[in-house]
Design a protein around this nucleic acid. Structure first.
Length: 398
DNA sequence: TCTGGGGTCCTACATCGT
DNA sequence: TCTGACGATGTAGGACCC
C-alpha cells in the first residue's frame, strides 16, 4: 500500500502571521477578555495590539496548539497556560472556536475525497489516504498527487497542508513532520536508515512520554537504537504486544490498512471546575453539574443516533489522581434520567472526602439506536426503572 | 503555577460458567 | 463432588492521540 498522511495548518488570521500565538485555555475566559476589549468585532479585524497576551491570562487551561513562532520559545500543545506565560509572556492568546474548526475540517476532508476517496479520519486536522489505486498517484513518487491535494485544499479552505508520502501509515505520519508548514516529504523503504533511524523514539506515533522515558532509562534514545535491539529483549521489557510492535515500528513495518469507516465505542462529557469542589460543601453545585453532564451525553447519543449500556463516571481529585467506575446495564439506553441514576450509583462507590477538580460521565458499549431497537426486549430489569422504597433519591446522591 | 476535553486501545484482574 | 483449565465478560487504570 502507498499512504499519504496529510494534516492542515489551522491558524487563519492574516494579521498574526509570523507572530507567537497560542490557541487554547478555557474558552469562556478568553472569549470574555476579547469581548471586553472588542465588543462583537470579528477576530480577523482586530488590530494585533488589541489581542490578549499570555501574561494577562488568569486561570486554568492548556494550550491546544501554537504557531511556529511561539514554539521557538518552548511553548507547545498540552502545556499549562501558566507555564507557557513564563516562557513567552507576550504571545497572543486565541480562543478555540470549535464550530469554525469543524467547518474547515469538513471542507478539508471533502477536498481530499474528491481526489482520493480512501480516506481515514484521524481527528479534525489529520487524515491518512490510501492512494494506491488513484490514477496518476505514482507519478514522481507521489509528489504530483500530493501537490494536487495541496492546491485543492488551499482553493477550498484557504488553508495550507503538510503531506507525508510513504509505503505505510506509520512512516507517512513521520514523513509529514519533516517539512512543515505546507510541505511534502517522501520517504521510501530504502530511506529507513538515513531518514528514520536518527529520529528520537518519541517521533513514533504510539510512543508517548512514559514509553520514551522507559526507553531512555534503558539507554535507547533513537529509533535506530530501538531497531538494533532483539525483539525478545523488547518483549521482556515492554510485554508481548508492545515489544513486538516496537520492533516492527523501528524497522518501518506497518500493515494497518487505511480504515475508511468506523463506529464510535463511547461518548462522554467531562468538565474541570474553575475551583476544586467539595462533595459535601459544594453539593448543590456538583449535583447540578453532574446532572448537566448526563443530559449532554444523552443529547449527544440522541443526536448521533446511538444507545449504550455501560455507564461510567470519572473524577479527578485535587491531587490530579483520577478514578473511574463503570456499571453495565442489561439493556441499552440513551435516556438522561437513566444515565443520571446509574452514574449516581457509580459515584457512590468512590470516596468523596477529597476535593474534586474534574467530573465526567461516559456511556460505552454503543450500538446504533435502530439496531438496538431490533434487539431490545420489552422487559426492563427490576430496580432500574423505579426506585426501591427507601433508596436515596437522585438529589441525595452527594 | 501545574497539567482541557473527547476519544481509542491495551493490560491486569476478578468473576462466572462450562 | 471436587478441582483445575479456559474463555467470556465486566471493571479499573493507564498510555496515548488530536
Amino acid at each position: 500500500m502507498d499512504a499519504f498522511f496529510a494534516s492542515i495548518e489551522l491558524l487563519r488570521y492574516p494579521q498574526l502571521k509570523g507572530l507567537p500565538v497560542v490557541i487554547g485555555g478555557g474558552r469562556r475566559r478568553i472569549d470574555e477578555a476579547l469581548r471586553e476589549a472588542q465588543g462583537e468585532r470579528a477576530l480577523r479585524f482586530i488590530p494585533v495590539d488589541d489581542f490578549p497576551r499570555l501574561k494577562d491570562y488568569v486561570g486554568r487551561g492548556v494550550i491546544t496548539t501554537a504557531t511556529y513562532a511561539a514554539r521557538q520559545f518552548g511553548v507547545g500543545s498540552a502545556m499549562g497556560m501558566m507555564k507557557a506565560a513564563k516562557l513567552c509572556p507576550d504571545a497572543i492568546v486565541l480562543p478555540v472556536d470549535f464550530d469554525e474548526v469543524r467547518k474547515y475540517s469538513r471542507a478539508f476532508k471533502e477536498a481530499i475525497r474528491e481526489v482520493a476517496p480512501l480516506v481515514e479520519d484521524r481527528g479534525v486536522d489529520e487524515v491518512y489516504i490510501d492512494f494506491t489505486d488513484v490514477p496518476g498517484g505514482q507519478r514522481d513518487g507521489g509528489r504530483a498527487l500530493a501537490r494536487l491535494l495541496q492546491r485543492s485544499i488551499l482553493e477550498k479552505t484557504g488553508l495550507t497542508c503538510s503531506i507525508g508520502v510513504a509505503p505505510n501509515k506509520l512512516i507517512a505520519k513521520m514523513a509529514s513532520e519533516f517539512n512543515k508548514p505546507n510541505g511534502i516529504s517522501i520517504v521510501q523503504e530504502a530511506d529507513l536508515q538515513t531518514m528514520i533511524w536518527p529520529l528520537k523514539c518519541r517521533k513514533i506515533n504510539g510512543i508517548g512520554p512514559k514509553s520514551d522515558a522507559k526507553l531512555a532509562a534503558l539507554n535507547i534514545h533513537t529509533i535506530g537504537e530501538m531497531a538494533a535491539q532483539e525483539i525478545g529483549w523488547l518483549i521482556d521489557h515492554f510485554g508481548q504486544a508492545t515489544g513486538a510492535w516496537m520492533h516492527d515500528a523501528a524497522w518501518g513495518r506497518d500493515s494497518r490498512p487505511v480504515v475508511t469507516q468506523s463506529e464510535p465505542v463511547s461518548m462522554s462529557r467531562e468538565t474541570t471546575f474553575e475551583r476544586d469542589l467539595h462533595a459535601v460543601r459544594d453539593k448543590a453545585e456538583l449535583g447540578a453539574v453532574f446532572t448537566r453532564l448526563c443530559e449532554k451525553v444523552a443529547e449527544d447519543l440522541e443526536r448521533k443516533g446511538y444507545v449504550g449500556k455501560t455507564i461510567g463516571i470519572k473524577l479527578r481529585y485535587d491531587n490530579f489522581q483520577s478514578v473511574t467506575r463503570d456499571q453495565t446495564l442489561a439493556h441499552y439506553t440513551a435516556d438522561a434520567k437513566t444515565i443520571r441514576q446509574i452514574a449516581g450509583l457509580a459515584l457512590k462507590r468512590v470516596p468523596l472526602t477529597q476535593r474534586l477538580r474534574l467530573l465526567g460521565v461516559r456511556v460505552g458499549t454503543l450500538l446504533k439506536a435502530e439496531d438496538a431497537a431490533a434487539l431490545q426486549t420489552r422487559s426492563v430489569p427490576a430496580g432500574l426503572t423505579a426506585e426501591e422504597p427507601g433508596s436515596p433519591s437522585m438529589d441525595q446522591l452527594f
